[in-house]
């Protein structure tokens, strides 16, 4: 994937985390739903963030996932 794609994933998953935290604090949805959202979005955001700042600006697909 391209560097910008990782950045987009970081933003989307961070938005999901914020919405889940807000929903949990206001009690807008059942308690388990924000937890499930965080369990899905947190690893995605962490790994995408790492992959984003790991990726180079000058090359194509980094990290190399070919062969």
């Amino acid at each position: 994937m391209k560097k910008n794609t990782f950045l987009a994933v970081v933003f989307i998953s961070a938005a999901v985390l914020c919405i889940a935290a807000y929903a949990a604090s206001t009690g807008a949805c059942p308690g388990w739903l924000p937890v499930v959202a965080v369990m899905l979005a947190f690893p995605t955001s962490v790994l995408s963030l790492f992959l984003w700042w790991n990726a180079s600006n000058t090359k194509g697909d980094i990290p190399f996932t070919g062969y």
């Binding site: 965080v38 369990m39 899905l40 690893p43 790994l47 700042w53 790991n54 990290p63």
Partner: peptide, 28 residues
């Protein structure tokens, strides 16, 4: 997180990558 990253030739790609995400998810 800043080190060069790739997937080894011998690895099972989906399991190799997703097991890391699952590890974070279960402890979250």
């Amino acid at each position: 997180s800043f080190k060069q990253t790739w997937i080894p030739k011998t690895a099972s790609m989906p399991l190799y990558v997703f097991i890391v995400a699952v590890s974070i998810a279960i402890w979250a």
